[in-house]
Amino acid sequence: MKKAIISTIISAGLFLAGSAQAANEMDPAVESKLVKVCEAIKSDSVIKVNVAIRDSGLGMKRIADGLVCNGYDPVSFAMANEAQKTAKFLAKKSAADNQEFLASL
């Protein structure tokens, strides 16, 4: 009886750990759309950025303030890839203080 209780507790613990891990994974469709936004930012085309953001289903402000592309925020990612037009565009849309980025453009 004691072994049955212990095995039940261990099984429940493994099941809950698996559920918690699965909850942190991103939906592949959403991830693909966000990758397209990062690619558009890198392309230095404001039109492509607008289209990619619209297709992602998220708002401009949410993308500008919350997206991470290769470990960078969108403005820094654009600057790292010498995409000044998109960096300037996203800096204007971001709630963060990106005056230093705007000044350097």
Score class of each variant (00 low, 15 high):
Pro74Gly: 03
Ala83Leu: 13
Met79Lys: 15
Gly71Glu: 13
Val75Leu: 04
Ile53Val: 12
Glu82Thr: 09
Ala80Asp: 04
Ala52Pro: 01
Ala64Ile: 07
Asp55His: 02
Gly57Ile: 11
Met60Asn: 02
Ser94Gly: 06
Lys61Thr: 12
Ile63Gln: 00
Ile63Val: 15
Leu90Gln: 07
Thr86Phe: 02
Val75Ala: 12
Cys69His: 08
Asp65Thr: 03
Ser76Phe: 02
Gly66Cys: 06
Lys88Tyr: 05
Ala64Thr: 05
Arg62Lys: 09
Arg54Pro: 00
Lys93Tyr: 04
Ala64Val: 04
Leu58Glu: 04
Val75Asp: 09
Ala95Gly: 15
Tyr72Gly: 01
Ala80Glu: 14
Phe89Leu: 09
Val68Gly: 04
Asn81Met: 09
Lys93Arg: 13
Met79His: 02
Lys93Gly: 00
Lys88Gly: 00
Tyr72Ile: 01
Gly57Ala: 08
Arg54Tyr: 09
Val51His: 04
Thr86Ile: 15
Ile63Met: 01
Ala78Asn: 05
Ala87Asn: 13
Asp55Trp: 00
Asn81Leu: 11
Ala95Trp: 07
Tyr72Gln: 10
Ala78Pro: 08
Ile63Asp: 00
Lys92Ser: 11
Ala52Glu: 06
Arg54Ile: 00
Arg62Glu: 14
Ala78Asp: 15
Ala95Ile: 03
Lys92Ala: 15
Tyr72Ser: 13
Gly71Tyr: 05
Asp73Asn: 11
Ala52Val: 04
Leu67Thr: 01
Val68His: 09
Phe89Ile: 04
Asp73Ile: 05
Arg54Val: 00
Pro74Tyr: 09
Ala95Gln: 15
Gly66Val: 01
Glu82Lys: 07
Leu58Asp: 03
Ala95Asp: 15
Phe77Lys: 01
Val51Met: 10
Ala91Leu: 08
Asp55Glu: 10
Gly59Leu: 09
Gly59Ala: 09
Glu82Gly: 02
Gly59Glu: 07
Gly71Val: 11
Ile63His: 01
Asp65Arg: 06
Lys93Ala: 07
Val68Met: 12
Ala91Cys: 12
Gly59Thr: 09
Pro74Asn: 12
Lys88His: 05
Leu67His: 02
Phe77Ile: 05
Lys85Arg: 08
Ile53Thr: 03
